[in-house]
Simulated scan of single mutants.
Amino acid sequence: MPNTQTQQKIGFQHVGSFLRPTALKTARAEFAANEITAAQLRTVEDDAITALVAKQKAVGLDVVTDGEFRRAYWHLDNFWGFGGVEKIKFGEGYLFAHEETKDDSARLNGRLSFIAATHPVIADFGFLQKVATEQNIQAKITLPSPAQFYSELVRGINASEIEKYYDSDEALFTDIKRVYHEEILALYDLGARIVQLDDCTWGMLVDPHFWNTIAGAGFDPQKLQAIYVDLNNGAIADLPADLTVNTHVCRGNFHSDWAAQGGYDTVADVLFGQENVSSYFLEYDSDRAGSFAPLAKVSGDKRVVLGLITTKSGELEDKQTIINRIQEATTYLPLERLWLSTQCGFASTEEGNILTEDQQWAKLALVKEILVEVF
Protein backbone atom coordinates (compact mmCIF):
# COMPACT_ATOMS: atom_id res chain seq x y z
CA MET A 1 0.00 0.00 0.00
CA PRO A 2 1.16 3.60 -0.48
CA ASN A 3 3.10 5.09 2.41
CA THR A 4 0.83 8.08 2.98
CA GLN A 5 -2.77 9.14 3.11
CA THR A 6 -3.41 10.02 -0.51
CA GLN A 7 -6.40 12.24 0.19
CA GLN A 8 -4.07 15.01 1.38
CA LYS A 9 -3.56 17.78 -1.16
CA ILE A 10 -0.51 17.39 -3.34
CA GLY A 11 0.32 21.09 -3.23
CA PHE A 12 1.92 23.10 -6.01
CA GLN A 13 5.12 21.22 -6.87
CA HIS A 14 7.66 21.39 -9.65
CA VAL A 15 9.04 18.06 -10.87
CA GLY A 16 12.54 18.92 -9.71
CA SER A 17 15.38 20.51 -11.67
CA PHE A 18 15.90 24.15 -12.63
CA LEU A 19 18.16 25.91 -15.10
CA ARG A 20 21.56 26.54 -13.54
CA PRO A 21 22.33 30.25 -13.11
CA THR A 22 25.40 31.65 -14.84
CA ALA A 23 27.41 32.06 -11.63
CA LEU A 24 26.91 28.39 -10.80
CA LYS A 25 27.87 27.21 -14.28
CA THR A 26 31.00 29.36 -14.10
CA ALA A 27 31.97 27.98 -10.70
CA ARG A 28 31.49 24.37 -11.82
CA ALA A 29 33.70 25.00 -14.86
CA GLU A 30 36.33 26.64 -12.66
CA PHE A 31 36.25 23.71 -10.26
CA ALA A 32 36.65 21.23 -13.13
CA ALA A 33 39.68 23.23 -14.26
CA ASN A 34 41.15 23.18 -10.71
CA GLU A 35 40.81 26.95 -10.46
CA ILE A 36 38.70 26.92 -7.28
CA THR A 37 38.40 24.49 -4.39
CA ALA A 38 35.51 22.19 -3.55
CA ALA A 39 34.70 24.43 -0.58
CA GLN A 40 34.56 27.50 -2.81
CA LEU A 41 32.27 25.69 -5.26
CA ARG A 42 30.00 24.61 -2.43
CA THR A 43 29.68 28.21 -1.24
CA VAL A 44 28.49 29.24 -4.70
CA GLU A 45 26.07 26.29 -4.75
CA ASP A 46 24.76 27.20 -1.29
CA ASP A 47 24.08 30.77 -2.35
CA ALA A 48 22.38 29.66 -5.59
CA ILE A 49 20.15 27.16 -3.79
CA THR A 50 19.17 29.66 -1.11
CA ALA A 51 18.15 32.13 -3.81
CA LEU A 52 16.32 29.40 -5.73
CA VAL A 53 14.22 28.41 -2.72
CA ALA A 54 13.17 32.05 -2.31
CA LYS A 55 12.22 32.27 -5.99
CA GLN A 56 10.19 29.07 -5.78
CA LYS A 57 8.35 30.38 -2.75
CA ALA A 58 7.71 33.69 -4.50
CA VAL A 59 6.11 31.99 -7.53
CA GLY A 60 3.76 30.16 -5.18
CA LEU A 61 5.24 26.69 -4.88
CA ASP A 62 4.16 24.80 -1.77
CA VAL A 63 7.04 22.31 -2.03
CA VAL A 64 10.57 23.19 -3.14
CA THR A 65 13.70 21.43 -4.37
CA ASP A 66 17.34 22.45 -4.60
CA GLY A 67 16.97 22.45 -8.39
CA GLU A 68 19.45 19.54 -8.48
CA PHE A 69 22.06 22.32 -8.61
CA ARG A 70 24.83 20.15 -7.18
CA ARG A 71 24.30 17.34 -9.72
CA ALA A 72 25.65 16.85 -13.20
CA TYR A 73 22.88 14.35 -13.95
CA TRP A 74 19.45 13.70 -12.47
CA HIS A 75 20.40 10.07 -11.81
CA LEU A 76 24.10 9.19 -12.03
CA ASP A 77 25.27 11.37 -9.11
CA ASN A 78 23.03 9.36 -6.79
CA PHE A 79 24.31 6.04 -8.13
CA TRP A 80 27.93 7.11 -7.71
CA GLY A 81 27.23 7.80 -4.03
CA PHE A 82 26.64 4.13 -3.20
CA GLY A 83 29.48 1.89 -2.10
CA GLY A 84 30.36 -0.72 -4.71
CA VAL A 85 29.72 1.67 -7.62
CA GLU A 86 32.30 3.41 -9.78
CA LYS A 87 32.06 6.27 -12.25
CA ILE A 88 33.17 5.26 -15.74
CA LYS A 89 33.26 6.47 -19.31
CA PHE A 90 30.89 4.17 -21.17
CA GLY A 91 32.23 4.97 -24.63
CA GLU A 92 28.85 6.15 -25.86
CA GLY A 93 26.33 8.59 -24.42
CA TYR A 94 22.59 8.12 -24.13
CA LEU A 95 21.12 8.32 -27.62
CA PHE A 96 18.31 10.84 -27.85
CA ALA A 97 16.23 11.58 -30.92
CA HIS A 98 18.56 14.30 -32.17
CA GLU A 99 21.52 14.41 -29.76
CA GLU A 100 23.88 12.21 -27.78
CA THR A 101 24.76 12.98 -24.17
CA LYS A 102 28.14 12.75 -22.50
CA ASP A 103 29.23 9.15 -21.95
CA ASP A 104 29.38 8.96 -18.15
CA SER A 105 27.92 5.85 -16.54
CA ALA A 106 27.89 3.82 -13.32
CA ARG A 107 28.92 0.19 -12.90
CA LEU A 108 29.65 -2.15 -10.06
CA ASN A 109 33.12 -2.50 -8.57
CA GLY A 110 31.99 -4.31 -5.42
CA ARG A 111 28.91 -5.29 -3.45
CA LEU A 112 26.45 -2.49 -2.84
CA SER A 113 26.44 -0.53 0.39
CA PHE A 114 25.04 2.73 1.71
CA ILE A 115 26.85 5.01 4.16
CA ALA A 116 24.99 8.21 5.00
CA ALA A 117 28.16 10.09 5.92
CA THR A 118 29.71 9.59 2.48
CA HIS A 119 26.68 9.73 0.19
CA PRO A 120 26.56 13.30 -1.18
CA VAL A 121 22.77 13.44 -1.58
CA ILE A 122 22.33 13.17 2.19
CA ALA A 123 24.41 16.27 2.96
CA ASP A 124 22.85 18.05 -0.01
CA PHE A 125 19.33 17.47 1.28
CA GLY A 126 20.41 18.47 4.78
CA PHE A 127 21.31 21.91 3.45
CA LEU A 128 18.06 22.21 1.49
CA GLN A 129 16.02 21.21 4.52
CA LYS A 130 17.77 23.86 6.61
CA VAL A 131 17.08 26.59 4.03
CA ALA A 132 13.47 25.47 3.52
CA THR A 133 12.85 25.48 7.26
CA GLU A 134 14.29 28.99 7.54
CA GLN A 135 12.00 30.14 4.72
CA ASN A 136 9.00 28.28 6.22
CA ILE A 137 8.32 26.02 3.25
CA GLN A 138 8.41 22.26 2.68
CA ALA A 139 11.27 20.58 0.82
CA LYS A 140 11.26 17.39 -1.21
CA ILE A 141 14.04 15.18 -2.46
CA THR A 142 14.17 13.79 -5.98
CA LEU A 143 15.93 10.45 -6.47
CA PRO A 144 16.36 8.23 -9.53
CA SER A 145 14.30 5.10 -8.98
CA PRO A 146 15.74 1.72 -7.97
CA ALA A 147 14.57 0.44 -11.36
CA GLN A 148 16.61 3.18 -13.03
CA PHE A 149 19.67 2.10 -11.04
CA TYR A 150 19.25 -1.50 -12.15
CA SER A 151 18.81 -0.36 -15.74
CA GLU A 152 22.17 1.42 -15.59
CA LEU A 153 23.95 -1.53 -13.99
CA VAL A 154 22.84 -3.88 -16.78
CA ARG A 155 23.41 -1.38 -19.58
CA GLY A 156 25.69 -2.84 -22.24
CA ILE A 157 29.18 -3.65 -21.01
CA ASN A 158 28.23 -2.76 -17.42
CA ALA A 159 26.32 -6.03 -17.10
CA SER A 160 29.49 -8.14 -17.31
CA GLU A 161 30.72 -6.74 -13.98
CA ILE A 162 27.71 -7.94 -11.99
CA GLU A 163 28.69 -11.62 -11.88
CA LYS A 164 32.00 -10.71 -10.26
CA TYR A 165 30.13 -9.67 -7.11
CA TYR A 166 26.70 -11.35 -7.25
CA ASP A 167 25.93 -14.99 -7.94
CA SER A 168 22.25 -14.40 -8.69
CA ASP A 169 19.86 -11.72 -9.86
CA GLU A 170 17.93 -12.11 -6.62
CA ALA A 171 20.99 -11.22 -4.53
CA LEU A 172 21.52 -8.06 -6.59
CA PHE A 173 17.85 -7.13 -6.35
CA THR A 174 17.95 -7.53 -2.57
CA ASP A 175 20.91 -5.18 -2.26
CA ILE A 176 19.42 -2.55 -4.57
CA LYS A 177 16.26 -2.48 -2.47
CA ARG A 178 18.29 -2.36 0.75
CA VAL A 179 20.59 0.54 -0.16
CA TYR A 180 17.67 2.60 -1.42
CA HIS A 181 15.62 1.84 1.68
CA GLU A 182 18.53 2.90 3.87
CA GLU A 183 19.03 6.07 1.83
CA ILE A 184 15.38 7.05 2.10
CA LEU A 185 15.39 6.46 5.87
CA ALA A 186 18.52 8.62 6.20
CA LEU A 187 16.73 11.39 4.30
CA TYR A 188 13.68 10.93 6.52
CA ASP A 189 15.85 11.40 9.59
CA LEU A 190 16.91 14.78 8.16
CA GLY A 191 13.29 15.84 7.78
CA ALA A 192 12.33 14.59 4.30
CA ARG A 193 8.61 13.89 4.16
CA ILE A 194 8.23 13.82 0.35
CA VAL A 195 10.42 11.56 -1.78
CA GLN A 196 10.01 11.52 -5.54
CA LEU A 197 11.38 8.58 -7.53
CA ASP A 198 12.28 9.78 -11.02
CA ASP A 199 11.92 6.89 -13.44
CA CYS A 200 12.56 6.80 -17.18
CA THR A 201 12.50 3.00 -17.33
CA TRP A 202 8.75 2.89 -17.94
CA GLY A 203 8.93 5.75 -20.39
CA MET A 204 11.55 3.90 -22.42
CA LEU A 205 9.84 0.53 -22.14
CA VAL A 206 6.81 1.83 -24.05
CA ASP A 207 8.99 2.33 -27.14
CA PRO A 208 9.97 -1.00 -28.81
CA HIS A 209 12.42 0.77 -31.14
CA PHE A 210 14.29 2.27 -28.20
CA TRP A 211 14.58 -1.04 -26.37
CA ASN A 212 15.54 -2.99 -29.48
CA THR A 213 18.42 -0.54 -29.82
CA ILE A 214 19.46 -0.68 -26.16
CA ALA A 215 18.63 -4.27 -25.17
CA GLY A 216 18.62 -5.97 -28.56
CA ALA A 217 15.78 -7.73 -30.32
CA GLY A 218 14.03 -10.40 -28.30
CA PHE A 219 14.03 -8.71 -24.90
CA ASP A 220 11.11 -9.59 -22.66
CA PRO A 221 9.19 -6.41 -21.72
CA GLN A 222 6.89 -8.29 -19.33
CA LYS A 223 9.84 -9.65 -17.39
CA LEU A 224 11.37 -6.18 -17.19
CA GLN A 225 8.11 -4.73 -15.89
CA ALA A 226 8.01 -7.35 -13.14
CA ILE A 227 11.61 -6.56 -12.18
CA TYR A 228 11.05 -2.81 -12.17
CA VAL A 229 7.94 -2.85 -10.00
CA ASP A 230 9.50 -5.35 -7.59
CA LEU A 231 12.61 -3.19 -7.15
CA ASN A 232 10.65 0.02 -6.64
CA ASN A 233 8.08 -1.51 -4.29
CA GLY A 234 10.72 -3.39 -2.33
CA ALA A 235 12.75 -0.24 -1.72
CA ILE A 236 9.77 1.75 -0.42
CA ALA A 237 8.12 -0.98 1.65
CA ASP A 238 7.74 -0.46 5.41
CA LEU A 239 8.58 3.22 5.47
CA PRO A 240 7.19 5.67 8.06
CA ALA A 241 3.49 6.39 7.63
CA ASP A 242 4.04 10.14 7.34
CA LEU A 243 6.45 9.81 4.42
CA THR A 244 4.93 10.39 0.97
CA VAL A 245 6.54 8.57 -1.95
CA ASN A 246 5.65 9.74 -5.45
CA THR A 247 7.12 8.91 -8.82
CA HIS A 248 7.78 10.81 -12.02
CA VAL A 249 7.78 9.07 -15.40
CA CYS A 250 9.04 10.56 -18.66
CA ARG A 251 10.63 9.59 -21.95
CA GLY A 252 13.92 11.42 -21.65
CA ASN A 253 14.78 15.08 -21.12
CA PHE A 254 18.15 16.36 -22.34
CA HIS A 255 18.84 19.77 -23.88
CA SER A 256 15.17 19.96 -24.95
CA ASP A 257 15.46 16.59 -26.71
CA TRP A 258 13.58 13.32 -26.09
CA ALA A 259 14.61 9.67 -26.23
CA ALA A 260 11.43 7.57 -26.56
CA GLN A 261 7.82 7.74 -27.64
CA GLY A 262 4.67 5.76 -26.98
CA GLY A 263 1.63 5.82 -24.72
CA TYR A 264 1.38 4.25 -21.27
CA ASP A 265 -0.99 1.51 -22.51
CA THR A 266 1.52 -1.36 -22.46
CA VAL A 267 2.80 -0.63 -18.94
CA ALA A 268 -0.40 0.64 -17.30
CA ASP A 269 -1.47 -2.61 -15.64
CA VAL A 270 1.82 -2.92 -13.75
CA LEU A 271 2.92 0.69 -13.34
CA PHE A 272 -0.48 2.15 -12.48
CA GLY A 273 -1.99 -0.95 -10.95
CA GLN A 274 0.85 -2.35 -8.87
CA GLU A 275 3.44 0.31 -7.99
CA ASN A 276 2.88 1.42 -4.40
CA VAL A 277 3.30 5.17 -4.73
CA SER A 278 0.90 7.92 -3.77
CA SER A 279 1.02 9.97 -6.98
CA TYR A 280 2.30 9.69 -10.53
CA PHE A 281 3.83 12.77 -12.15
CA LEU A 282 3.33 11.87 -15.81
CA GLU A 283 4.68 13.35 -19.02
CA TYR A 284 1.73 14.47 -21.13
CA ASP A 285 3.00 17.51 -23.04
CA SER A 286 3.04 15.99 -26.53
CA ASP A 287 1.49 13.30 -28.70
CA ARG A 288 4.49 11.10 -27.86
CA ALA A 289 2.84 10.35 -24.50
CA GLY A 290 -0.33 8.91 -26.02
CA SER A 291 -3.87 9.27 -24.71
CA PHE A 292 -5.31 9.58 -21.22
CA ALA A 293 -7.09 6.21 -21.52
CA PRO A 294 -4.43 4.27 -19.50
CA LEU A 295 -5.23 6.46 -16.48
CA ALA A 296 -8.28 4.25 -15.92
CA LYS A 297 -5.78 1.63 -14.66
CA VAL A 298 -4.56 3.81 -11.76
CA SER A 299 -5.53 1.70 -8.76
CA GLY A 300 -6.94 2.54 -5.36
CA ASP A 301 -7.05 6.23 -4.54
CA LYS A 302 -3.67 7.03 -6.09
CA ARG A 303 -3.47 10.30 -7.98
CA VAL A 304 -2.05 11.57 -11.25
CA VAL A 305 -0.25 14.84 -11.79
CA LEU A 306 -0.68 15.72 -15.46
CA GLY A 307 2.55 17.03 -16.95
CA LEU A 308 0.85 19.16 -19.58
CA ILE A 309 3.23 22.14 -19.47
CA THR A 310 6.41 21.40 -21.40
CA THR A 311 9.89 22.28 -20.15
CA LYS A 312 11.45 21.58 -23.55
CA SER A 313 10.37 24.93 -25.04
CA GLY A 314 10.03 28.46 -23.78
CA GLU A 315 6.79 29.02 -25.67
CA LEU A 316 4.00 29.52 -23.15
CA GLU A 317 1.00 27.25 -23.49
CA ASP A 318 -2.51 28.53 -24.03
CA LYS A 319 -4.30 28.39 -20.69
CA GLN A 320 -7.67 27.28 -22.03
CA THR A 321 -6.08 24.49 -24.05
CA ILE A 322 -4.52 23.10 -20.87
CA ILE A 323 -7.79 23.41 -18.96
CA ASN A 324 -9.57 21.55 -21.76
CA ARG A 325 -7.05 18.74 -21.57
CA ILE A 326 -7.52 18.44 -17.81
CA GLN A 327 -11.25 18.12 -18.40
CA GLU A 328 -10.55 15.44 -21.01
CA ALA A 329 -8.56 13.46 -18.44
CA THR A 330 -11.56 13.45 -16.09
CA THR A 331 -13.12 10.89 -18.44
CA TYR A 332 -10.76 8.37 -16.81
CA LEU A 333 -10.07 9.78 -13.33
CA PRO A 334 -12.19 12.19 -11.26
CA LEU A 335 -10.90 15.74 -10.91
CA GLU A 336 -10.17 15.23 -7.21
CA ARG A 337 -7.52 12.65 -8.17
CA LEU A 338 -5.88 14.88 -10.79
CA TRP A 339 -3.37 17.72 -10.52
CA LEU A 340 -1.07 19.71 -12.82
CA SER A 341 2.66 20.25 -13.25
CA THR A 342 5.35 20.64 -15.87
CA GLN A 343 6.14 17.46 -17.77
CA CYS A 344 9.70 17.25 -16.41
CA GLY A 345 12.44 19.37 -14.90
CA PHE A 346 14.02 22.29 -16.73
CA ALA A 347 17.53 20.84 -16.51
CA SER A 348 17.69 17.08 -16.03
CA THR A 349 21.42 17.47 -16.69
CA GLU A 350 23.57 20.47 -15.95
CA GLU A 351 23.40 21.57 -19.59
CA GLY A 352 19.74 22.50 -19.20
CA ASN A 353 16.94 22.78 -21.72
CA ILE A 354 16.77 25.47 -24.40
CA LEU A 355 14.78 28.26 -22.78
CA THR A 356 15.52 31.25 -20.56
CA GLU A 357 15.16 31.58 -16.82
CA ASP A 358 12.38 34.12 -17.35
CA GLN A 359 10.52 31.59 -19.52
CA GLN A 360 11.08 28.93 -16.83
CA TRP A 361 9.40 31.06 -14.18
CA ALA A 362 6.59 32.05 -16.54
CA LYS A 363 5.82 28.36 -17.05
CA LEU A 364 5.47 27.84 -13.30
CA ALA A 365 3.34 30.95 -12.93
CA LEU A 366 0.98 29.50 -15.54
CA VAL A 367 0.77 26.20 -13.65
CA LYS A 368 -0.13 28.10 -10.49
CA GLU A 369 -2.78 30.15 -12.30
CA ILE A 370 -4.47 27.04 -13.67
CA LEU A 371 -4.32 25.21 -10.35
CA VAL A 372 -6.13 28.09 -8.67
CA GLU A 373 -8.75 28.24 -11.41
CA VAL A 374 -9.43 24.51 -11.91
CA PHE A 375 -8.73 22.79 -8.60
Rank of each mutant, 00 (worst) to 15 (best):
L153K: 03
L153P: 02
F173P: 10
S151L: 07
L153D: 11
D167R: 01
P146H: 09
F149D: 00
A171W: 07
P144F: 13
L172K: 09
Y165E: 07
A192R: 08
L190T: 03
A171C: 06
A159C: 11
G191Q: 09
V154D: 05
I176W: 12
E152A: 15
P146K: 09
A186F: 07
L172S: 12
I137T: 05
Y166V: 01
A192M: 13
E183C: 07
Q196T: 01
A192T: 09
Y166W: 12
I176F: 11
S160T: 11
Y150Q: 03
E163V: 15
A192N: 01
A159G: 08
I184F: 03
P144T: 02
A186L: 09
N158M: 02
P146M: 09
V154S: 02
K177I: 11
A171V: 00
H181V: 14
S160A: 15
A139T: 00
S151R: 06
E182Q: 08
L197K: 13
Q196L: 06
T174I: 04
V195M: 04
L153C: 08
F149W: 09
I184V: 09
N158C: 06
I176A: 11
L172R: 10
E183L: 08
S160D: 10
P144S: 11
E170C: 10
D169H: 13
Q148Y: 14
I184D: 04
Y150G: 06
L190F: 07
D175W: 02
K177P: 08
E161W: 14
P146N: 07
E183A: 09
Q138P: 01
S145R: 12
Q196F: 08
V179Y: 05
L187T: 14
Q196M: 12
E152K: 15
